[in-house]
Computed example of a mutant assay.
Amino acid sequence: MALVKSTRIESIDLLRGIVMVLMALDHVRDYFHYDASLHDPTDLETTTPILFFTRFITHYCAPVFVFLAGTSAFLYGSNKTKTILFRFLFTRGLWLILLEIGVNSLNWTFDLSYSFVVLQVIWAIGVSMLCLSFLVFLPRKLIAVIGIVLVVGHNALDPITMQGNAIESVIWYMLHQANGIPLGDATFVYFAYPVIPWIGLIALGYCLGSLYTRGYDRSLRKKWLLGLGFGSIILFFILRGINVYGDLVPWSEQDTLSKTILSFFKVTKYPPSWAYLLITMGPALVLLHYLEYVKNYIGDIILVFGRVPLFYYFLHVFVIHVGAILGVILFNENGMALVSSISGNPIAGLAAHGYSLFMTYVIWIVIVTLLYFPCRKYMIYKINNKHKWWLSYL
């Protein structure tokens, strides 16, 4: 299959495509795996190694997504003035926040009353882009220092916790403590992605974009990617081994070796700890190095998802949600009544009528396969209509 010609950097789109395919696995598990309604897949008392791995492998999605948003921002602005880049990042950041609130929350719940609004990764990218729009006026080395300080230093803020709905508490929930607040009598807003470390990560991704400027030595870029990647992995093991700083919850010895290993790799995502970002971005950077060699049929397929990330994100959640509803209706007696009776958390309610982990994997493969066709069609449309400015926001 010949891929439609594009000027985009293939290795970046490949990495983005890989994590977006993995992201669908986690969301299929949310809606279709019966245990998702009962237990946290990282709960050492109830999980299994394969279930833990199913969740752990999807940890790579959000940080790579945010990091590459920064890289793409650098590449977008490489032949533009800082003012133009600022305007694009600022307006796109606002647009993503609006999409998160208005579209994504509805996509996850199908609740037209918006009684439960969860601010997730699209929100985090939007806020991070707003901040990056101002950072781009600084020297790149200073941006890198700010990114490192936010990523490495934010765990020093872990002991600070707040409660209640006071303005300072709400600001802290946005910045560093996952929590929620009631908004009036009918809506509850949950800040699932506190933004301090995500801002640091997008800043570091922006700085990495300099490795992809025209004329940059390819062999030197690969050395940087390998060095940064393996360095992050080694630092993760050192940091977790010392077990003093870098994650909200230290690991501990369990009653079995397998549980102890799982405890070691059970890193905090909300907000993403330094350890979490090391063990996700380290392998991702190594993979980014090797993806420069990939030229095959499978790679061409994955590239499609990586080139239409926002379209894919909203479409895959919608398809998964609809699929879960249809599954309950078609494979349960009085299925329509069961769907109508689900209240509270609709995701857990649908998963309660779900399937084994094996079937969850099968459903994931089927859904990703189905998503390929509209994504490819939209990708071709974008390539053939580059002159339409609004497509850069979608």
Results as ranks from 00 to 15, higher is better:
247 D>P: 05
8 R>D: 12
130 L>E: 04
125 I>N: 10
215 G>E: 06
313 Y>G: 09
91 T>D: 14
287 L>A: 13
90 F>Y: 14
72 S>G: 15
295 K>E: 15
124 A>P: 06
353 H>D: 12
326 L>Q: 13
108 W>C: 00
348 A>V: 05
117 V>Q: 08
310 L>Y: 12
136 V>G: 10
54 T>F: 08
271 P>C: 04
78 S>Q: 13
187 T>M: 02
373 F>R: 00
174 M>G: 14
393 Y>C: 08
200 G>S: 11
380 I>D: 09
29 R>E: 04
340 S>N: 14
269 K>E: 12
10 E>V: 14
201 L>W: 05
93 G>F: 01
210 S>F: 08
293 Y>C: 05
307 R>T: 13
346 P>W: 01
116 F>C: 01
178 A>E: 15
72 S>T: 12
349 G>T: 13
263 S>Q: 06
174 M>Q: 13
228 L>S: 14
214 R>C: 07
55 R>A: 15
217 D>T: 02
279 I>T: 07
222 K>I: 08
286 V>Q: 14
387 H>I: 00
52 F>A: 05
59 H>A: 08
105 S>F: 01
190 Y>A: 01
100 E>G: 11
208 L>S: 11
344 G>S: 06
86 F>A: 11
378 Y>H: 11
207 C>M: 03
360 T>P: 00
161 T>I: 12
131 C>N: 08
135 L>Q: 05
272 P>Y: 03
152 V>P: 10
146 I>S: 01
379 M>W: 11
62 A>R: 07
235 L>D: 07
316 H>Q: 14
282 G>S: 09
361 Y>C: 06
25 L>C: 01
313 Y>E: 11
8 R>I: 07
66 V>G: 09
185 D>P: 02
22 L>F: 13
43 D>R: 04
345 N>P: 11
136 V>A: 08
7 T>Y: 03
170 V>W: 00
56 F>T: 03
115 S>W: 01
134 F>Q: 08
99 L>D: 07
392 S>T: 13
135 L>T: 04
265 F>R: 02
67 F>Y: 04
246 G>T: 04
375 C>R: 03
190 Y>M: 02
385 N>K: 10
3 L>Q: 10
61 C>S: 13
54 T>S: 15
58 T>I: 06
259 K>N: 11
221 R>I: 00
38 L>P: 02
148 I>P: 14
74 F>T: 06
68 L>Q: 04
341 S>W: 02
172 W>N: 09
154 H>I: 09
47 T>G: 02
103 V>S: 05
235 L>Q: 05
191 F>T: 06
